[in-house]
Amino acid sequence: MSGPPLAWYLILSAVLFALGVAGFLFRKSIITIFMSIELMLNAVNLSFVAFSYQLKQVNGHVFAFFVMVVAAAEAAVGLAIIVTVFKNRETLNVDEVDSMKY
């Protein structure tokens, strides 16, 4: 097996996931929180593809593809929610958007 070993990819994926978690928990703007979610999804995809390459199967690719589909749907709905929230409250700070009723 040529190329970098599996562990490198997994460590990179774990660090990327941790960065996504950090952004998700630390930031205040809903948009940045959304971007952190995308980072985490990409980290998971990366480890799917790494395992798939290691095992010489394409099942992992199929799973990564499904994750991308769900990410696209999530981004469309989530960004529509962000626009609606901003129209109603004129803020995107998660500390202020803390009740579902307005």
Partner: peptide, 18 residues
């Protein structure tokens, strides 16, 4: 990295979709 792991399809989807 996908391209490095011979996942050409996901490489294209990543660029186009994301």
């Amino acid at each position: 990295l996908y391209l490095l792991q011979q996942a050409e399809f996901l490489f294209a989807v990543q660029i186009v979709l994301y």
